[in-house]
C-alpha cells in the first residue's frame, strides 16, 4: 500500500506542491527532447534514402564539433570556421558516397549497416589522430550564442531558462522545419522518397541515386554539426558526445525510422518523459533510470504500433 502511494500518489502531490520545479523539469525535458529530435533526424534522413541505420551518426556529431573548435584553435575566426565545417561535412558526404556507398549499391541492408560501423571506427581514429582525445570548450561566445539565464518567479519559487537552451530549442525547431519542407516540398525531396521506396525503380526513372545520397549525408552532417555545437555548449566537446547521440535509438523506435514528424514527436516524448521519470520516480529505485526508461517507453509504444508512431506499415505478400 505504501509502495502504491509512493508510485501513484506522492509524485503528483509533489508536482502540485512545487509547480516551479515541475515546470523546470518540463523545460529541461523539452530542451533535451528537441536535441534528441535533431539527432534522430540525422538517422531518419539516411534511413529514408538508403534503408540503412547509420551507426556513424554519433561520431559525426563529435567530428563536426571537434572540427569547429579545432579550426578556431588554429586561429580561424569562428564564423569562417563554421563555414569551413559545413564544407568538411560536404566533403565527408561526398567521400562516403564514393568510397563506401557506391560500391555497395544493391547489396543487402546489413552490408551497408556494417559499412557504417567501419566508417564510425574510421572517424573515431581520424578524429583522435587530428584533434587528440582531450576535451575542448565549445566556442559559444565567439559564435554569438547567448549566455546567462532568464528567471521567472512561479508560485514562490523560480523557473530558470538558460539562454543557450532557448537558442538550442529555437535552432532545432528552425532546422527541423527547413529540412522537413526541403524534403517534402522540393523535387529532391520527392526523389528522396522514391529512392527510399525502391533504389532500382528510382534509378529507372532517371533519379541519380549517388546525388541523393550525397545530399542526405550532407544534410545529416549539418544536423550532426548543429547537435555538436549545442550539446557541446551544455557540456564540453569530447568523444563522450557520441554516447549522447545514441539517445536517438529509442526516439527512432518510438517515432519510426522513416518519419520526420516521428523523429520530432518521438524526441519530445522521450525527452520530457525521461526527465519526469528520473526526477519524480527515479529516487524510488535509487536513481539513474534515465538510461533505460526511454527504451521502456519505446517498447510500450511498440506494443500498440509495431511500426512506430509515424512509421509506415509494411505489408508483405507471401
Amino acid at each position: 500500500m505504501e509502495l502504491a502511494h509512493k508510485i501513484f500518489v506522492a509524485p503528483f502531490w509533489e508536482m502540485s506542491g512545487a509547480p516551479d520545479l515541475f515546470l523546470q523539469v518540463l523545460w529541461e525535458g523539452f530542451v533535451a527532447g528537441t536535441l534528441y529530435s535533431l539527432i534522430a533526424l540525422g538517422f531518419v534522413l539516411i534511413f529514408k534514402a538508403s534503408g540503412v541505420f547509420n551507426f556513424a551518426q554519433g561520431i559525426m556529431v563529435v567530428f563536426g564539433a571537434l572540427s569547429l573548435v579545432g579550426l578556431h584553435q588554429l586561429g580561424v575566426p569562428a564564423w569562417v570556421a563554421l563555414a569551413l565545417c559545413i564544407g568538411i561535412m560536404f566533403v565527408l558526404a561526398w567521400t562516403v558516397e564514393r568510397v563506401v556507398l557506391r560500391p555497395l549499391v544493391n547489396q543487402p541492408d546489413i552490408i551497408l549497416f556494417m559499412a557504417t560501423i567501419g566508417l564510425s571506427s574510421f572517424l573515431i581514429g581520424l578524429g583522435e589522430f587530428i584533434f587528440g582525445g582531450e576535451p575542448k570548450t565549445m566556442i559559444t561566445a565567439e559564435l554569438g550564442l547567448p549566455s546567462g539565464a532568464i528567471d521567472f518567479a512561479v508560485a514562490g519559487g523560480f523557473v530558470s531558462l538558460q539562454k543557450i537552451d532557448i537558442a538550442a530549442a529555437v535552432m532545432s525547431a528552425v532546422l527541423v522545419t527547413v529540412l522537413a519542407v526541403f524534403f517534402h516540398k522540393t523535387r529532391i525531396g520527392r526523389a528522396l522518397r522514391a529512392v527510399a521506396d525502391d533504389h532500382q525503380a528510382a534509378m529507372s526513372v532517371g533519379i541519380t541515386l549517388q546525388q541523393i545520397w550525397v545530399i542526405v549525408w550532407f544534410a545529416a552532417g549539418i544536423v550532426a554539426l548543429a547537435t555538436g555545437i549545442m550539446w557541446g555548449a551544455r557540456s564540453d566537446v569530447s568523444f563522450a558526445l557520441e554516447i549522447v547521440a545514441l539517445k536517438a535509438l529509442p526516439v527512432l523506435i518510438l517515432g519510426g525510422f522513416t518519419s520526420i514528424p516521428g523523429a520530432i514527436v518521438g524526441g519530445l516524448i522521450i525527452g520530457i518523459t525521461e526527465k519526469l521519470a528520473e526526477f519524480y520516480w527515479g529516487p524510488l529505485v535509487g536513481g539513474s533510470i534515465e538510461t533505460w526508461i526511454p527504451y521502456f517507453i519505446a517498447l510500450l509504444f511498440l506494443w500498440f504500433r509495431p511500426q512506430g508512431l509515424f512509421g509506415e506499415k509494411i505489408i508483405e505478400r507471401v
Partner: peptide, 17 residues
C-alpha cells in the same frame, strides 16, 4: 544522486534533485 555513465553529459535531472 547517481549519474549513469551514459548520462554523464546529460545531468539536468540530477541537478534538479
Amino acid at each position: 544522486i547517481p549519474v549513469a555513465g551514459k548520462e554523464m553529459q546529460n545531468q539536468s535531472s540530477q541537478w534538479l534533485q
